[in-house]
Design a protein around this nucleic acid. Structure first.
Lengths: 340, 340
DNA sequence: ACCGTCTAGGAAAAGGTTTGCCCGTGACCT
DNA sequence: AGGTCACGGGCAAACCTTTTCCTAGACGGT
């Protein structure tokens, strides 16, 4: 029961204690634990029994010091933890945590100084890799001043440098899904209300919606895309505009769920039945909006958690020295509810 | 320029390289960096110059191995990263990141297995402390099987063990603020619509609202608390019930912003002016609800980020071996908008 | 019976920093 | 002039694990 030398100064058992208890050397104990080296089965078992008895857990700092790896990745989010980055972050955490990798959370609040601060911190901690997520789909400049040996994956907001690895949502496919669904349910006079034109997501979704309509020989019911804000208030105003311009509109594809909800509210208040008279389709599948809407919204789900998960997998791959640069898109999914 | 022995095997400069360049021993270089020990100013400066020239950054793994500290705290959130835990988490991250402490994110998804898994992981990493946040204000059982040497602070959901340190919102004060505001603006026939009675937050807010009204010699306009769900749909239904039971109601205090929004919508649709005829006050100050509501909601802000920050500070304090057990409440703040 | 081969397991270095302890030198005091 | 003290700085242990290299013993073959 007495473990050779002094009892461990830290309350925890060290490998040396295990070795002493098992009657082997420290090196042998290590090999027994890691399955390396050859040894008699009963010797290995004695070591494992000792581990069990002492409740030994290896000191990760020592392991990391030796291996140079920290079994940790940095997760930098640039806008607080917004509605978009949260699921991405959770997806990544899930994929990484399944292994023995943990996630260091860094929030830059969009501040370049903070970003540098965190970057230095992560570098000092010798993280194995970094995932950068943004709030929007607009490309962002790559991290600067970073040790090139640390792999980086950009999620949601791609890097402007095509040599980096980015994982983004498929806005084209999303718009396609929404429009196709409306067409398939017999709608032909479709309007599009979305966010600010200077947002890439708004532009992309609009462009692909228009293209897809054109492919079916159709045009937008109001003849143009209604760019505005990502808000309910804008959705309400835009709905009025749509009804004025093209009273025969039978569907509105909205750039996000907030707009869609505003549209649905305004339509109802103008005496239009949703979906009887006019179908409404949103984008984001943000539960609190989509489910609270009257009626609940059909909407495009970007599979954000999946984006996070894939970003994590790409990162793991890059850590194993098999980087796969370029922009990877993750398909969306249509969630059909009662508004269409 | 040649740095004594071999060039560093890792691309990074080691303290030994710095020492060689400065012409001192490794130990001295270390002391120069840490301000410890006594030495000639010019010696210290030579070391600092060498650090600068080589871009030296200490290897944290080595530091941690030596000190036993990881300069890291675990942040366990039990329900994904919900609307409530997110601000708490950011507040904590902010307070901790200001020092040189980083945050390890662990999401248990409410799963006890996962919680144990993460707990072992955090223990293995020798985190300096752990912050546990929940979704609700209901007390939760303390972490089990944890090394007692690791300080833990519970945020938002207090621990059931009063010997633990918990930081929670002040539901009493919040209810007080809301009711006082309504009274101060001349309302006297006040109804209360809130969430499920089995939620502590709902019970507490209701109880304190009633008590405060009683203090002013008043009772609830409908004679009872309307317990239900935390949803807009419930808010709408409850508003109807309130109007039926007590048509002369001139204010509704709601248990959260979703309910409040539902109430406001229903009131408007029943031809009641908000706030002209009836004032509405929400709870949570959840922007997307409070601002999108027509009219924008007066609401109670729980200062969640502050809760996170204070939890972080308490944790730092506990890490410095000055624990301060018990439940600490953080006051709320009333945000007055147009609904009252 | 001797030599070669193979195996189990030990010894020690490496990974990088901190820190307690010690020593040499120069200054100051008596 | 000798002793004491303070100061500057070096040495080495400690933190703990992994991994390479090596040795002693056993076993088989001739």
């Amino acid at each position: 029961m007495t473990s050779a030398a002094g009892s461990p100064p830290t309350g925890r058992a060290r490998l040396a204690d295990v070795a002493a208890l098992a009657g082997v050397s420290v090196g042998t104990a290590s090999k027994a634990l890691n399955g390396a080296g050859r040894m008699r089965p009963e010797t290995r078992q004695r070591v494992l029994d000792a581990v069990e008895e002492l409740g030994f857990r290896p000191n990760q700092h020592a392991q990391s010091l030796h291996s140079g790896r920290s079994w940790t990745v940095g997760l930098m989010t640039t806008d607080g933890i917004g509605r978009f980055s949260t699921p991405v972050l959770l997806g990544a955490e899930d994929a990484l945590g399944a292994g023995k990798i943990s996630v260091l959370l860094c929030d830059t609040r969009g501040d370049a100084i903070r970003e540098q601060h965190h970057l230095r911190n992560l570098t000092d901690r010798r993280v194995d890799g970094i995932i950068v997520t943004g709030r929007r789909t607009d490309p962002r400049p790559p991290l600067t001043g970073i040790d090139p040996a640390i792999p980086v994956v950009y999620a949601l907001s791609p890097s402007t440098d095509p040599a980096d690895t980015s994982v983004v949502t498929d806005d084209r496919g999303g718009a396609h899904l929404a429009v196709e669904h409306l067409l398939a349910t017999g709608r032909t006079r479709i309007a599009h209300v979305t966010g600010p034109e200077h947002h890439q997501a708004a532009r992309d979704r609009a462009r692909h919606a228009v293209e897809h309509l054109a492919g079916a020989g159709l045009e937008l019911a109001t003849g143009r895309v209604h760019f505005g804000e990502w808000s309910e208030a804008w959705g309400r105003r835009a709905a009025d505009a749509v009804l004025r311009t093209a009273p025969d509109t039978d569907a509105v594809f909205c750039g996000n769920d907030q707009i869609a909800r505003g549209v649905a509210d305004a339509l109802r208040e103008r005496g239009k039945e949703v979906p009887g008279d006019i179908a409404v389709v949103g984008y984001d599948n943000w539960d609190t909006m989509a489910l609270a809407c009257r009626p609940p919204l059909t909407t495009v789900d970007m599979n954000l958690a999946e984006i996070g998960r894939i970003a994590a997998l790409r990162l793991l791959q890059a850590i194993d020295a098999e980087p796969d640069p370029g922009v990877h898109t993750v398909p969306c999914r249509l969630v059909v509810r009662e508004s269409s």
